[in-house]
Amino acid sequence: MTQAPDLPLWAAILAAIFVLIGAGATFIGSMGLLRLKTFYERVHSPTMGTTLGTVCILLASACVSSVVHARFSVHEALIFLFVSLTTPVTLMLLARAALYRDRVAGDESVPVEDDRSN
């Protein structure tokens, strides 16, 4: 059932710790989607998965593939770059779309548009 590459003990323990921290952070972040009450609160929690979760799992992956292929493996940095640059953009756009929709719907709980806007 459990299948994994055969690594030296230090690498195995390091990778195991990182992968567990990363998966745990992602799990808690996604749990926020269930537990938080409003949309604006829910937007905050998945960023746990995209920051701490992604970084830790990528570190574990880099650690494993560096040892397995016996060379320094850093191409995981690419995923980190893409995810850390794109997630803020999507969340920002999504939150602004939600704000726009709430304002159109006349929701009192969201702040009104700044009158002096361009």
Binding site: H44, L85, T87, D114, N118
Partner: peptide, 24 residues
């Protein structure tokens, strides 16, 4: 990007004329 990537803060809208920023 910094504010949105940080869990807990979310950049919503920036007004160029007044220089004011709306955060959640």
């Amino acid at each position: 990007i910094i504010l949105t990537a940080t869990p807990g803060t979310l950049w919503l809208q920036y007004n160029r004329t007044t220089g004011s920023l709306l955060l959640h």
